[in-house]
Design a protein around this nucleic acid. Structure first.
Lengths: 247, 247
DNA sequence: CCGGCGGTTTGACAGAGGTCAATGCATGGT
DNA sequence: ACCATGCATTGACCTCTGTCAAACCGCCGG
């Protein structure tokens, strides 16, 4: 099906080589949305001292499927994909994460999926062992992590319905609505997808050609408008909603 | 695709009407595997007093998708399915749970999927509010719940690869290996599937006919043997493993 | 032991979507 | 401003799997 087209883009990981200058949590952009939000000031400082700010370029992979789980992180900025693949290189994106989301596998030995930057991104990175220890001692942090994990699980299960039972048309409609919900539209109502057609196909469990054909068809019907390579404007949201549910 | 064929089997829920006689945790069959395992004796007693033992018959549904999240439970015995469906009745099973697993949506207002007994089952049922409050006060319980949720999420994401990228053959092979891993084989090496062909199809995101055809083909090749309606013996496990990965 | 029910298997067919291939066209570098 | 490159679109074709339908057969009750 599709090859791991972006492996070649991955340079050496900057994790060890380019820690940014230590930066306080005070001016952190996700300060009031990340899992560390409701820690007390001294606790947050302690956690902050465990972690490092790290910058990623689009295409770089932070963790690989099956690796030992060495680090976890908060996403400060940017969009990343979580993916797994079959032995022969078919890839399925199992999650897309945004600013303030948490990535990595705490309390477990293995990273079950790769994590790759789709855009340039900044992370607040923690060694897993230290993070685990810290979390065990801080009930609210653990509670927030649990909340997030439960939400992730709900979203993931909802996506299984899409993968297993929806038609290509329904998949694309659902995807567009999902993106519109997460992304901020500009003044013209256009959203900029952080994903290529190939990546969209990898999320929807289909092919690039099918995604393209479905989008063209939606455009032909006047339900969406395509602007440039990655821009989309949802012209008739209600129609999309209907298609997403398969009516 | 497939209709919700088993809705008709659902009698009135026994949840309110048939609480079993209070029963201590001492003789609980999942005592050392459920999330309550490492609570202190008094704590476990306290939790036990919040909950009730409840018996379900095969086909009965405990919670419906979209309902307010009123209860959570430990599975003491039996097998249940978690499912979501599209507006027009296509169903996707998003999880199968066994003895000692935890079900329901703690810390959230809505139940994101239905929960239905596949076999007769026994639950240790808690009102969600009380359970949430208890869990917040007991870090180890919450930690165990987090562990389980993280494991569930890993498994669920692995299943997304199957739904999105695997062929019918690979799906069936993966399913059989997964069941063999979970279920206890009898002396002849035969496992008894707790699922009908329709339910298998609903797990794999395919149809009953495709499942049947793939199983027949595997049997023809001597890789598995079918015994009766629900029995399967994995004759050539290595061949199955190879098929599951798509080689 | 038999008969009927409900799940399962098998067959024939069709269509959605995958594959292969060519063309089109944004985007970024010079 | 232009071109080159790589992504996206479109087309033709084919296959896998879904659909419809009939035959089959475990399993249970009488």
């Amino acid at each position: 099906m599709n090859m791991q087209f972006d492996v070649a883009q991955n340079g050496a990981l900057p994790l060890m080589t380019r820690p940014c200058a230590p930066q306080s949590c005070d001016q952190c952009g996700v300060r009031d949305r990340a899992i560390c939000t409701d820690l007390s000031d001294p606790d947050r400082d302690a956690l902050s001292r465990i972690g490092r700010r790290v910058t990623l370029h689009a295409g770089q992979t932070v963790m690989w499927e099956g690796d030992d789980s060495m680090v976890v992180a908060n996403v400060i900025d940017g969009t990343l994909k979580l993916a797994t693949s079959t032995g022969d290189g078919r890839e399925q994106i199992v999650g897309v994460v945004y600013a303030s989301d948490f990535i990595g596998r705490p309390f477990g030995a293995r990273t079950p999926h790769s994590v790759t930057a789709l855009t340039d991104a900044r992370l607040c990175l923690f060694p897993r062992g230290s993070f685990d220890a810290f979390a065990r001692d801080h009930g609210d942090l653990q509670h927030r992590l649990l909340q997030r994990t439960l939400d992730d699980l709900d979203r993931t299960r909802a996506w299984m319905l899409l993968l297993g039972r929806k038609t290509a048309r329904e998949k694309v409609a659902t995807f567009l609505l999902d993106m519109a919900r997460r992304l901020q539209a500009d003044q013209a109502g256009t959203i900029e997808l952080p994903l290529s057609r190939q990546q969209i196909a990898d999320i929807l469990g289909t092919t690039i050609e099918t995604v393209s054909r479905q989008m063209s068809e939606l455009k032909r019907q006047g339900i969406i408008a395509l602007v440039g390579r990655r821009g989309v404007r949802l012209v008739d949201g209600a129609a999309l909603e209907a298609l997403a549910e398969g009516v």
